[in-house]
Design a protein around this nucleic acid. Structure first.
Length: 403
RNA sequence: GGGCAGGUACCCAAGCGGUCAACGGGGGCAGACUGUAAAUCUGCUGGCUAAGCCUUCGGAGGUUCGAAUCCUUCCCUGCCCA
């Protein structure tokens, strides 16, 4: 195996990272790997309780991909065992514990999605229940003896909850130990994670040292802000772009990010060439609108191909900029004998969640039929006469009503 | 195990026998203006073919003409004591 010069590797690997502990050790590991021709083992733990991946998850997956592209070995650890614990990192609530079976089921789904970012052929995927499930109570006690309550309480997420008189399960304290054991088990050279994982990653070093292994380098990536530009990207906040989402949906969502985030997305979520980043940074400042379109095109291209990205752009221009009706929209055939009320039609077609919601939207002028605004919530529609026609709700919900 | 304080809509949080589908804030949605950006203004934010009706305030019972509000019991959380 031939590796690129260390400095060249570092240029790519350091891109976008928040912190590398210790950076010097990464250089040493890379040098050793190059001279001995041995790839580094790069670990990424994944949380199988949330199998829907978005661009936020992709940040760290992209980093793993960069390691792969430089010839190193990726190990994806599915935390089926740790999933039963539920890590508190970065969240202020206890996470629901899953059954081993549920976490297993999600593991494959996670892998399938992650393969859209990674080189799926060259990933080793392992379940940590394989070894964690073998530990005896004695083993656990021994591991637990290597850390202190004060250290754990120093973590912001624990201390904050403690201050607020919120519950902290004792088992949650075991999470970092379990994750650290994973590093020992696979002899990780590098472990990737979000900045919220710092404590857990460092625990890996501690445990590796205690069994005489060369400790892993901890590489932390920033937490990507969601579409709102403030909160971290997450599905529950509905400020995310899922990596399995359709091209048009992705394109539109990406254009809705605040200007200040454009460069960050280029750096962390796109495959834009590292050497071009300074140039892009300038463009983001001088011409945010075009830069944002370029960003959307780039990212959609990564997941759907460049043709699809161009189509998504055309679709966007047509529906949003020129406010025309999209070429391909879902058709819906209402269930009704005789005339149907507008509200039930909207709800039946899935454009609104309830008749109440439909009423509000109609009253507020958010509903159009064939481009004509409709504000009468009591409108009855005779499908025999009117269908087919196109209804639009809000900015981007369409349906073609047929008979 | 004992004492105390709590559990209200997506989140925070008022309410403490009728005027409560429940104040206020956050978030969200929609409209105007835009570059589906920012800023700003406005409206909405349980369900129902609705001037009315139905289901909500941890669960289950009860008191009452009437309960988110009172009582009993169970579950859950935090604090103090052991």
């Amino acid at each position: 195996m031939k590796f690129a010069p260390v400095e060249e590797q570092l240029l790519h690997l350091k891109r976008g990272t928040a912190e590398i502990i210790p950076e010097e050790q990464l250089r040493m590991k890379l040098e050793r790997s190059r001279t001995t021709g041995t790839p580094l083992t790069v670990k990424l733990g994944c949380d199988p309780s949330r199998p829907d991946l978005h661009l936020g998850h992709a940040v760290v997956l992209r980093k793993l991909r960069q390691f792969q592209d430089l010839g190193h070995s990726a190990v994806l650890i599915v935390g089926d065992f740790t999933g039963m614990i539920g890590d508190a990192s970065g969240r202020s609530k206890m996470r629901p514990a899953l059954s081993l079976e549920e976490t297993r089921r999600n593991g494959q789904s996670y892998f399938d999605q992650a393969s859209r970012v990674l080189d799926g052929e060259r990933v080793r995927m392992v379940y940590n229940s394989t070894w964690l499930g073998q530990l005896t109570f004695e083993d656990v006690v021994r591991l637990a003896g290597r850390t202190t309550v004060a250290q754990l309480l120093a973590r912001e997420d624990f201390s904050a909850r403690y201050r607020r008189d919120e519950p902290i399960g004792l088992h949650e304290f075991l999470y970092p130990l379990a994750q650290a054991q994973d590093s020992v088990e696979i002899r990780a050279d590098v472990e990737l994670g979000g900045t919220d994982q710092k404590f857990n990653l460092l625990m890996g070093r501690t445990q590796q040292k205690s069994v005489g292994q060369d400790p892993q380098v901890c590489m932390m990536l920033p937490i990507l802000e969601g579409l709102d530009g403030v909160e971290k990207m997450s599905k529950s906040l509905d400020n995310y772009v899922g990596i399995t989402e359709g091209a048009s949906e992705m394109y539109g969502k990406l254009l809705s990010i605040p200007d200040g985030l454009i460069y960050r997305y280029f750096e962390l979520a796109s495959d834009a060439d590292t050497h071009h980043l300074p140039e892009l940074a300038l463009q983001c400042r001088s011409n945010p609108r075009d830069a944002k379109h370029l960003l959307a095109h780039t990212i959609v291209g990564m997941y759907h191909g460049l043709d699809a990205a161009s189509q998504a752009r055309a679709h966007f221009e047509r529906t949003v900029i020129r406010k025309e009706i999209p070429d391909a929209i879902d058709e819906f055939r209402p269930q009704a004998d005789g005339p149907i009320g507008l509200l039930s039609l909207l709800t039946q077609a899935g454009l609104t969640v309830s008749n109440g919601a439909a009423r509000r939207l109609v009253t507020q002028g958010a509903v159009r039929i064939d481009g004509q605004r409709v504000t009468d919530s009591r409108l009855m529609i005779d499908l025999d006469q009117e269908a087919p026609f196109v209804v639009k709700v809000g900015k981007r919900k369409f349906a073609r009503i047929i008979q």
